[in-house]
Structure formats: C-alpha cells, structure tokens
Nucleic acid binder design. Structure first.
Lengths: 371, 371
DNA sequence: TCAATAAATGACACCGGTTTCCTAAAGGGG
DNA sequence: CCCCTTTAGGAAACCGGTGTCATTTATTGA
C-alpha cells in the first residue's frame, strides 16, 4: 500500500529544492483558468496537500526548508485558501455579525470601524444587520441572519442589545455574542459596558460650578438603559452639590431631534425659565438650540446647553455644544476583541468586565448664568 | 449493487407518509447535540440526501407529497443548510461586499440599508469594508477583502469608486462589482449613476428666481466626480439665466465642515458680499452657517444658503437648510439588485444604465435678497 | 403488447480544505 | 547494535452540500 512512497524519499532536501526551480517556471507559464487550490500547490511542491495545510496553519512540524518552498509557491501562483472549504472543515465561518437598530449613523459607523480594526488582526470579516425591534419579524430575522451565514459570533448594540428575547434567541442558537450597554445585563463575558454615569456627573458638576441653579433636564426614553444611567447620575451629582432637580424641570424625550424641540418648548416656557438645559443626547440638544433660537433666546448668553454623545453635530452647531464623548470606536473594538478571544479559545471564558468611560468635552455652549 | 434499493420501493406513498409520523416523534425525542445536516433530514425522510437537496433548491422534479414530507421534517428539526458546504459545492459565497471611504456616516448607513433590502430578497448578506485610499495598503487590503471570504460581488461607493486601480484589482480578481458615481465611468452593467446635475440646476434656477445676482459657490474637491458635476451644472444653469459666476466668487472646499468655514470666510469678506452661497454639500453649508453667525450675518435675511445631500444636519440647523436630496438608499438598492442579477444569471449582462435623480428640497435658508 | 418516454429518485464522485492515524527516517541512550 | 523517541510527512476519511448519470416506475402511443 504505502511501499511506493519509500523510493520517492531519497535525498528529500536537494530533490525538492531542485524541483522547485522547474516548478516555478511551470507555474508562471501555466496561467490556470481557475483559482489555484491546495492541490495545485501540493502538486507543484511535490508534497501532499496535508503538508501544505500544515504550512497554512503554521504547524510547527514542518521542515523549515519545506515551508519556505511551499510558501514560495503559494506566493507565486497567488494561492488563497477557500474560506468555504476551510469553514466546512473547521466548522467556522470567520464571520462576525453586527446587529443594530440605533438610528445614530455616526455611532454605527464608528462601531463598525472599531470592530473591523479588531477583525482585521484576527482574520475575521463583519456582516451587518440593521433591524427593527418593533417589527413582528424581528426575532426571526435575527435568527435567520445568524443561521444563514453560520456566524461565529454577533455583536449587538443598544437599544437592541437590551432586548432579552433577542439574547435568548442567540443563546438558543448556540451563537456567541457580546452586548454593548450602559449597564451590565449579562455575564461579564457577554458584555461591554460604557460608563455614562461619569460623563453625566461631570456635567452636573460643571453646571453647578458655573453657578446654574435653575436647571432643566431632558431625559432619554425609559426603555433605554443609558437614559436611566444618565438621568440618575445627573440627578444624584446635582444633589450632592446641593441642587435639587424639580420634577417640572424634567421632560422625557425620545433621543430624537423633534422630541428635543418639544421638550425644550415646554421647559423654556416655564417660570422660572431654566438658565441651563442638559439634554441626554446631542440630537435632542440640537432640538433645544432650534427652539431657543425660535424663541429668541440667545445661546449661551441666556441659556447654557449641554448634550451627550459628542456626535458630529456638536461641533456643527453654533455655538459649539458642550457634550460628553462616548468613544464608540473603542467600544466596537473591545466588543470584537472579546468575542474573538472567546471564539478562538473555544469556550466560555469568565472574563472580567470591560468597558469605557465617557468624559465631558467643554465647548462654547456652556457659560455662567447672566447676573 | 443497486438491487437492494428495489424492495424498499413498495408502496412509496403510504409507506413514507406513515414513516413520517414515527419519525416526527423521533425527531422531537432526539435532541441532537449538533446542528442537523442534510443527512439527518434524508435519514428521517427515508430518502437520499440528493432528494432533500432538490427540495431545498426548489427543483421541479420532486413529487409533491415527498416535498411536503421533507419540508415538514426540515421544519420540525430546524434544519438550515450549511452555507459553507453550499458555497463549496456552488462555488458561491452568497456574500456581497461594500467598499467605502466616504466620511459621511449617514450616507453609508443609508446605502447599507438599501443594499440589504435587495440582499434580503435574494438570500445574500453584506460584508462591510471601510478603507483609506491614501493608505499604501489600500489596493492590497481590498484584494484581501474579496479573496478572504470569496465575495460574490462588491459594491463600491464614491470616492473609492472613482479609483481606476481599485477597479482593475477587482477585475483581475474576476470579482463582479458595481460602482456608484455621479458620472458613468464604466460599462453600464458596472455602474449606478446618480444625477447631480438635475439638483444643482434646480438650485441655480431657485436662486435666480429669488432674485439673487451676487452668488458665491463652494465647490467640492476636484478628485470627486460629483464635485465637477455639481459645479458644471450649477454654473451652466446660472448662465442660462443670464448670471455669470465670477471666478472670485468660487472657492474649492474639501467636502468637510472646516473647509466650509474657510471658504465661507473668504467669500463673505469680499466686496460685493454675495447675497447667497451654494455649498456643494451640507457639511460645508454648515460651515457657512457657523461663519456667517460668527461674522454677525443673519441667515437668511442677509445671506441665503443652499447645500447638497439632505443629510440630517440640514434640518438640525437653524434656519433649516435648503438642499438637494440624494436618495442614497435607492442608490444602494439599485446597485445591489444589479449585482445580484449579474451574479445569479451567471454572466455579464449588457444592462441599461440605472440611476437616480437628485431633487431640490426648499427649506428656510433661502429667501429673496434684501432690498 | 411492447417499446419509448417522462417523472421521480438514488449512487457516487466532487468541491477544497482538515483531522486522524500511520509510516519512515534520524537521533540518542544503554 | 538495537530499541525507543522525535520529527517529518503521507493516505484516507470526513465536513455538508451539489453535479452527473443511472435506475426504477408509471404513462403513453403505435
């Protein structure tokens, strides 16, 4: 059976090295009409495909010389392993999914960038999946998404990440996932948490230090965890500076520009009129700008405004908006790194919680109150 | 060899239907510890895997009853074909790539949404790839991107789409692609063109009709085809209304907010000061707003401003910005549909050019000049 | 009645990798 | 000098689908 292999073994080093020279010429001459496969490489190198496979996968049990020869051929004929075949044998797709229903485009693009930075290093690619929690197909869509391409892992951003049913679906599917949220909702291994409390507290301190006492607050929608975090931290920090936020000075918005306008209109027609408004995100802060301008209230002379997110609009507005920076790209990178480690080390690791901290960025829209 | 198959054939209908009942129970009882494969389905249905394959692929040569039985089992055990195995056999990945270096996040997210709408219908998924034309690895990155997951097709958005070397790489790879651009740079089958001329001409007409004569223009960077289109069309349409754009009233920006500020500063300190400024995109228009406000020029009383893109910022600004809407989502959908047709019909079709037209949206920032 | 034809299905190789198991040769110690 | 270990590499099965071609059965026309 295997006796015929023996005679071929004589003087392996020289024999192979010499063969290569010829082979190289062959390779250049040939010009295959199809992408080269591992078999082509094996044939040209006069080795078995398994040895080529070993080289590809960095196995240490390959002679240095053999490795060099094979790598040379791979380079020359431009061989790239078929991801399908690889995936089939490995039971892996080297694909990560990103599930989002966040309307903030800049946030999504930043997350994508961060995720991809980590993916690139590990040889993964990213498949995106916008979705809609209000749709009746939401859960089924997500399921199909994971199954259709057999994703190795999924990253879910808020607010979808805060949907327990979605997480259940992912868990049932046996699909590894990492969730982004402002609070820890899961085992540490499945979460990347961003600390909104820090930023909100800094805003409270900032406003207090400037001398504001009549402060308005526009909260986010209560279904968002971040809305709670920002609100509680802000209120708590104000209180610790001896300032109590009266209930009528709080309005709940929807994290949208329009809701910011509505809430601002209510706040700015109250007596006493607040000298500062903290909106829970920049979109709503932009709504406050528009309303103030419409009402003839000068920013920042008559009204200090602070936002949250540090989205591009913060610098586009005039005067530029004091806000809190949420490092979305880092968030994406951390999530992807976490996911990839778990996929590669092939089982649940009890990782420590990772997260990023938000910090205030002071710009032109916040000044001491008049008088 | 095949004689053993004969006896099993007796009374196929009843036999199979009866078997199913049992099988159904088995399936529920079993709970496999691995995802079910086509073999599991075949075994439970007492058919060959080939027949299951036929059902999956909607082959017409399957008995209606058999099909029903197999579909029932597929449903029950939750079988989903492995994309890796499918891809390996089909030589397809069912993956589309999106290559972009466009800094406009909203544009990218909209494109993604449109592309995915088309993908969903055809069973494709989308892999994203932000890139940087200025990087020395740009072309190699793109190549790796296509090869690593063996993408079936790639959609390239501007300005990367206007890079001829990138296209050459894709062509060499034998990878189907569709480019988005403001001008046709390629065979019709490879392009989706958006008509910026229409929108720019409408702006010219609008400004002329309002009575503006001293008009400033901020062009986009010359490496963008869209910049040329917008400029030429605007200048041409003004001329046809008897208005000539003097050279000192034209500045070239970089499609960024900051460049908008710089150009606006130059335009607004000239004599005679323009009564209207058309910026080639909304970002730069936002820069004009900021500059005008800084200089104490009232918008729109002293200065009419018009942008291009209808990005979210257009409505966030105060007063809201007259601009031109570029239907990015439709653009993405068209590109994906085109690509998918070519992939599925398995060879270059000489399609007609597809495209979308931009239209002006009038808001509050454009009014007749004072006096 | 008997091919000839069509419909439904199966057997088997194949896609391009990996894993498992095995062999051969070289080096090292007693 | 022999046995054992280590190193290098190969053969064949396998991953989960699809293509090709053959086979079986039912239907049809002469």
């Amino acid at each position: 059976m295997t006796q015929d292999a023996a005679p071929r073994k004589g003087r392996p080093r020289r024999g192979r090295a010499a063969a290569i020279q010829t082979v190289a010429v062959e390779a250049v001459t040939w010009t295959l009409d199809r992408p080269p496969t591992i078999n082509d490489v094996a044939r040209l190198a006069h080795v078995s495909k398994k040895t080529v496979s070993r080289v590809i996968n960095q196995s240490p049990f390959v002679n240095e010389e053999t490795r060099t020869i094979i790598n040379g051929i791979i380079e020359q004929i431009g061989y790239v392993p078929s991801p399908q075949a690889r995936g089939l044998a490995f039971q892996r797709s080297f694909l990560l999914g990103l599930v989002y229903d966040n309307p903030n485009a800049q946030f999504i693009v930043n997350i994508q960038e961060g995720v991809l930075a980590a993916c690139r290093l590990a040889g993964f690619e990213l498949v995106v999946h916008p979705c809609d929690q209000k749709s009746p197909h939401f859960l089924n869509d997500a399921k199909q998404f994971v199954q259709r391409q057999n994703l190795d892992g999924v990253i879910v951003v808020p607010p979808a990440s805060e949907n327990p049913q979605l997480v259940e679906v992912l868990r049932d599917l046996g699909c590894r996932y990492v969730r982004l949220s402002a609070v820890s909702l899961d085992e540490a291994a499945n979460m990347v948490v961003y600390n909104d409390r820090q930023g909100a507290a800094e805003v409270a301190e900032h406003l207090a230090a400037l001398g504001h006492r009549d402060i308005g607050f526009i909260a986010g929608p209560s279904r968002h965890r971040s809305a709670h975090e920002r609100r509680e931290s802000f209120v708590g920090a104000l209180k610790s500076h001896g300032i109590t936020l009266r209930p009528e000075m709080v309005e709940e918005g929807a994290y949208t520009f329009e809701s910011g306008e509505v809430c601002a209109t209510r706040l700015l027609t109250r007596e006493p009129r607040p000298t500062a408004i903290f909106a829970s995100n920049d979109e709503m802060a932009a709504g406050v700008y528009k309303t103030a301008q419409r009402l003839g209230i000068s920013i920042p002379r008559d009204l200090t405004i602070v936002g949250f997110d540090d989205s591009p609009i913060a610098t586009r507005l005039w005067p530029s908006l004091t806000t809190v920076r949420l490092p979305a790209k880092d968030l994406g990178r951390l999530a992807a790194e976490k996911l990839i480690i778990r996929i590669s080390s092939d089982e649940e690791e009890g990782h420590t919680a990772t997260g990023v901290v938000s910090r205030m960025v002071v710009r032109e829209s916040s000044v001491p109150p008049r008088g």
